[in-house]
Simulated scan of single mutants.
Amino acid sequence: MRLGYSAVTAGIIDTREAFEVAARYGLDIELSSDMVEMFPQLPGPGELREMGRAAGVGFTLHLPFVDLNLASLIEPAWRTSLERMQRALEYGAAVGARVGVLHTGQVPLRHPKLVELAFGRLQRALAELSPPPLPVAVENLVLDDQDLLRTPGELVRVVEEAGPGFGYTLDLAHAYVQGGAAQIGAYLEAMQASKAPLLHLHLHDNRGDWDAHLPVGAGSIPFADFREELAEFSGTAALETTGGEEGVRASLEALKRFWG
């Protein structure tokens, strides 16, 4: 498993500081497409790629989700979301990101007909993005009543229909909020049985009540229970923890205890 961290979630905005922390702990950096859009003065993809090469730091990319909905039933909103996602994937390819993490979208009114139409919109969007210029790892959510995909089966259906180039991000903390350790196990089982690959992990902690993004070990997620199931995982992972460098360091120490 190749491990990185989200500098944005850690609260580290300065680019050089983000690289220093990554290099100090031997981590990659999970970049944020939303930050790239909101702060165009940040280093461009070519400069970042060179900085990464010099520091021995690689990248994963969290694709945009702020004000974006690939399942939107409003045509202008859907079209804008698709165009932003296409630009973000091009950015990810230019910076050399190993994987891009994708949020699937929401349906504000859960009338059965609207849900059906929203599934169609999402499937159409993923077809438009195919084949992606870098592997795309679709993430489990269900943190909001408006989230479109509600079950492991629905996530698998969408990803398998998307075809080559698409796989999964397992966010253990999201699943824990949704249904505790049993739900983490349900997502992991569904992903491992799928024809599409498990590509990426998001690692952070909470106490089961909300998505607190605590350092690993600071909440109640039983990470040790999944040691054997993830022992052969060879993809990428990112710490999505608050607490700055100290949160990153504490998470690394906890993962050593839990997973070796």
Rank of each mutant, 00 (worst) to 15 (best):
T242M: 01
R98I: 08
R257T: 13
L129K: 00
S72L: 12
I184S: 10
Q41A: 15
A181V: 10
L63D: 02
M191H: 04
N206I: 08
V8D: 15
R121F: 08
L149P: 00
I13A: 14
R79T: 15
M51K: 11
D171I: 01
H200D: 08
V138M: 04
A250G: 04
V216R: 07
L31W: 02
V115L: 15
E232H: 15
S234P: 02
A238R: 01
L252D: 00
A182N: 09
M51H: 12
E116M: 00
V177P: 06
Y187P: 00
V142M: 15
E30N: 03
Q192I: 07
F19T: 00
G180R: 05
S81C: 11
S81I: 07
G165T: 12
A175L: 01
L117Q: 13
A10W: 10
L102W: 13
S32T: 01
V36Q: 13
G44P: 01
V36A: 12
A94N: 13
E47D: 09
R49A: 13
H200W: 03
A175D: 01
F258W: 13
S251M: 02
P45A: 13
A7F: 14
R79F: 11
L61S: 09
R207M: 14
E50N: 01
R150A: 02
Y176A: 07
S130F: 02
E128G: 08
R121N: 12
A118Y: 05
R49S: 14
Y5M: 00
P152R: 00
G165P: 12
P132M: 05
R121K: 10
D205W: 06
Q178F: 09
A193R: 14
L134H: 03
L155K: 07
I184F: 09
F233Y: 12
L198F: 09
L122S: 05
L3I: 07
D28T: 01
V66M: 12
A55M: 06
Q183N: 12
A55H: 03
G260R: 14
Q146K: 09
H174L: 00
E229Y: 12
E246K: 05
D205C: 10
Y91F: 14
Y168F: 15
S234A: 10
L148W: 00
V101N: 04
G56Y: 09
V66D: 07
T15R: 03
V107E: 09
S6P: 02
A94H: 13
A88Y: 05
A93T: 06
A54P: 08
